[in-house]
Write a protein that binds this DNA or RNA. Structure first.
Lengths: 151, 151
DNA sequence: AATTAAATAATAATCATTATCGATTGACAC
DNA sequence: GTGTCAATCGATAATGATTATTATTTAATT
């Protein structure tokens, strides 16, 4: 984790931004909750546990900065809040999501899946793809299993 | 267009909702701007042109109702507002979008594209897909052409 | 130590959306 | 026709996420 933090620090420096204590605390929370899909408020509350003096606006600014530098991705599942997801290091593209309409769980798919599709889109629509968002809504394997036993 | 309106009316009735004048005016605006991706406020202003007495809350309520009945899809391109898109009649799935990061244009892809991908996801992740959202961010064919001439 | 720009905390402001509530409408019973 | 009831509506207040403001703090540089 320290290594990733170090690389993020270098990434910030390369754009003449500093890794202030507040920014470091925020990045640490993101690293510690990589599996989750935290809202800005979620991040704020978690950062506050270790750095109680931090302000909400600072967390927003930090997340915005990290999104700008493509260190995190800002995503939106239609529930009114933006969520922030660390991008996998070296990942060419943003990972995909499975949102369960029963329990609300959000799982990730790191695999590419879209290679062929992107080729078609670039060629047939003459569209130069820079990024993508792919989310499936449906019933996750956990709810699926429960249904079988409960019914 | 009258036919589609008629079918939407039946769809509402089948769920014991009425096609009130306000709802009809709202649906007409959506039908007349099928190519666009209107926000609730956009819809409100357009409906107001022909039905000045309509209230903003009614438009919100109507759009919410239409989304519930899967007549429109509520989408979010990350700019802080929800947008509403009529679903193609008979379309099994929601269409995809191409968002240009230069000019902001949003184009639609009606083709399926995801058939193979969904098969893999359902099998390998044991996830029952009900809907999907696929958006590509990049440079549209118009901006692409302009770049070639302007540079 | 003085100067300066970047970053911060606290909080006010904004903006999209939702909730509230009294008024209106339309269907149906009488 | 009139009364009743539920659905719907318009106006507007309330909410909640996000952004802007501003005075203060920090860190780097002179």
């Amino acid at each position: 984790m320290e290594k990733r933090l170090e690389r993020i620090k270098k990434h910030l420096h390369s754009q003449s931004y500093k890794l202030t204590p507040q920014r470091e605390a925020t990045v640490r929370v993101l690293l510690e909750h990589e599996e989750d899909h935290l809202s800005a408020e979620d991040v704020y509350l978690l950062v506050k546990e270790k750095s109680p003096e931090i302000g909400l606006a600072t967390v927003y600014r930090t997340l915005e900065l990290l999104a700008e530098l493509k260190i995190v991705d800002k995503i939106n599942f239609g529930d009114g809040v933006s969520r922030f997801d660390l991008r996998q290091e070296g990942a060419a593209h943003f990972h995909h999501h499975l949102v369960c309409i029963e329990c609300g769980a959000v799982d990730e798919i790191q695999e590419d899946l879209l290679g062929d599709v992107e080729e078609v889109v670039e060629r047939d629509w003459n569209f130069k793809i820079k990024d993508h968002r792919l989310t499936f809504h449906g019933i996750c394997h956990r709810c699926h299993e429960n249904e079988n036993t409960e019914d």
